[in-house]
Every structure is written in C-alpha cells, then in structure tokens.
C-alpha cells in the first residue's frame, strides 16, 4: 500500500470492534498553569460520537488536538495511526468545522466552499462545492457575501466546507449553535447519515438534549477530564441515578420530613424554617410519594423544585461524586 492510501473503514456492524479512527492516549494539555485537558484516554471509531461537557470543560481543546491545531503537552493523539500535528495527510482525511464564527467574510458561501475544495485537490471543485452547499440546504445561487449571513447560515457554511472533500472523519465544534429547530433536525439527520456510512463524526456540545438526539456514543468531559463514556442511555441513567437535591416549601415541614424519611425514598433532609432540603436517588418514586405524605401529615406544599437539575451539577456529580 502506498503512503497516500488508506483502507476505507468498514461499516461498524461488520466489525467485532470499531476501528479506532481517533486514538487519544494519556493526553494532557496545559496552558501555563491552566490544565485544559488532564490525562485523557479513549478511542473513537465509526459512527457519531458526542463530546458532552459544560463550557470551559476542555471539549474545544480536545477537538483542536484531534485536528492538529494544537499539540498535547503529554501523551499522544493519532488519527488513522498518524500524528495530526505533523502529518499533512491527516487534513485530507478530516473535515473540520471550528467553533469560531469568523469566515472569509467578503466571499460568497459558494466561493468559500469552492476554495476549500480546490485546496483539498478535489476534482471538479465547483460541482463539489455546489453539492456540499446543497447538502446543508443553502442556496448555491446566493450572491450575498458571508458577512451578511446569520449565525445559523454560517454554521451551515462551516459544515459545507468541512464535507466538500468527502472526509473520513468529521470534527464539528458546537455545530448546532444558532440553528433553528428545523435546521437542527436537518443537521442532525445529515450527521447521522454521515456516521451511518462507516465514517467517524465527532461533535461537541454542552446541551444534554442535543447530545441525546445526535450521539449514540457519548464522552462526558468535565474539568478537562473524561468523566464518563458509553452509550447515551447508560450515561443518562448514570445521571438520573445520582442523588438529586429537591427543595420543598411546606407548612408542617418537620412532620413532612419525618414522614418522607419513613418511606425510605430520601437519603437526607435538612430543615430551615418552612424550607425542606431533601436528597433522593429516586426522583420518580419521590415525586409520586410526596403528595400522599403531605396529606398524611396534614401539610400543604407551596413549592417543590429541583435544586440541582442543571447540567453543571450533573457534571459535578460525575467528576467529583457530589
């Protein structure tokens, strides 16, 4: 096999183990005193993989390590066994849509995507650019420059330039940001089609619901560390099974707390006037039991709300166990 040829990846369902198109081994990345990524190891194969984590978790840094835009301070990153930082063949294999909005503002979308096609050596760059623009549902006849485009249109231009050379690996940093619901559906369908063809799609997001729809495989990144990885449903269960804090405002709060303790559904209760802070690992059962418990002790519930249902607290639990 020549140095400029690589085997096409087989579809995931024909392989016992997914092909590790991207390998990350013991990777850390420091910016001075700041640890952006800390000792992370994982492989990514064909299909759609989502990097999930709060803003500032290290997702974009990881993606930049995949693409070779940055080098690791420790550890190794390999794309098809090649160093993305030093091997100029890697860009041929990869399509990248970075997070930043800026594009070549004075060009039309078609010309910008055609430029990408030419610099990838695509034969028939004009036709390839039109096809890519069509795929992301932009207008190939649009004569406006990119400077006039909305955020959602820019996202689609970024995706078009990333797919114009038909890459094996697609790396997209927060690609759904700025899209309206219909555009999101369309983008997610496109990514799934791409992943279903045996290619590798890596998408970062800080929105749990987005990841639920995009990725069958999820890598949860928090504070630069790999907090969890696996099938989305496993991750979701892990998140749902964590201790949840719930705030209840009630008359006769002390009696209500005692009653709820008797049910065994709460692991702790803290009383502060008429406010009751409860911790439970079974939100569903607790929700069904709280009203009967209040009736039983002749209390009324004025307020009942989760105290930690935001994504940050989920990540905090996964990383720190609290």
């Amino acid at each position: 096999m020549s140095d400029t040829s690589l085997p096409a990846p087989a579809p995931p369902d024909t392989l016992g183990e997914p092909v590790p198109m991207v390998q990350v081994d013991g990777v850390s990345k420091f910016f001075g005193e700041l640890v952006a990524v800390s000792d992370v190891t994982f492989d990514i194969g064909p299909g759609v993989t989502a990097l999930l984590g709060p803003n500032g978790a290290g997702k974009s840094t990881l993606l930049r390590l995949f693409t070779g835009q940055a080098g690791p301070s420790k550890g190794t990153v390999r794309v098809f066994g090649r160093d993305p930082r030093g091997d100029r063949l890697v860009p041929r294999l990869m399509g990248v849509a970075p997070q930043q909005e800026a594009l070549f503002e004075n060009m039309t979308a078609l010309r910008f995507v055609e430029l990408a096609a030419r610099l990838h050596g695509v034969s028939g760059p004009a036709e390839a650019a039109r096809a890519a623009i069509d795929q992301v549902e932009l207008d190939t006849a649009d004569t406006r420059t990119i400077s006039t485009y909305s955020k959602g249109m820019r996202q689609r231009v970024k995706l078009a330039q990333a797919i114009v050379h038909d890459p094996w690996i697609l790396v997209l940093d927060e690609p759904l940001t700025g899209l309206d619901p219909r555009q999101r559906r369309s983008m997610i369908d496109l990514l799934k089609r791409f992943g279903a063809g045996g290619r590798c799609v890596v998408v970062s997001s800080h929105v749990l619901e987005e990841v639920e729809r995009i990725g069958s495989r999820v890598l949860v990144i928090a504070k630069g560390r790999l907090a969890a990885e696996g099938d989305f449903h496993e991750i979701r269960e892990l998140m749902d099974d964590r201790p949840h804090e719930i705030t209840v405002r009630s008359t006769r709060a002390r009696s209500l707390a005692a009653r709820l303790m008797d049910t065994g559904l709460i692991t702790s209760a803290r009383l502060d006037g008429d406010l009751l802070q409860i911790e439970t690992t079974n939100v569903g059962e607790f929700s069904r039991a709280v009203a009967p418990a209040a009736i039983a002790v002749d209390a009324s519930i004025d307020e009942l709300m989760p105290a930690d249902d935001d994504l940050e607290s989920v990540f905090r639990y996964l990383v720190e166990g609290r």
Binding site: M1, T4, S5, L6, P7, A8, A10, R88, L89, P91, R92, L93, N106, L115, R118, L119, H120, G121
Partner: peptide, 26 residues
C-alpha cells in the same frame, strides 16, 4: 475492502489558488 487515494492538490495548484486569494484579500 476498498481503497481511496489521498492526494491533495499539487503544490503549484495550491500556490496559484493562494496567490489569487491573497491578491484579492489585499
């Protein structure tokens, strides 16, 4: 298993595209 040839543009072709890009930009 199929194979794909992974050649980019020739350096001269890339250089020509880039020269035009920079001339237009400046």
């Amino acid at each position: 298993m199929s194979e794909t040839t992974l050649t980019g543009p020739s350096p001269i072709a890339a250089f020509t595209v880039l020269i035009r890009l920079f001339l237009t930009a400046t």
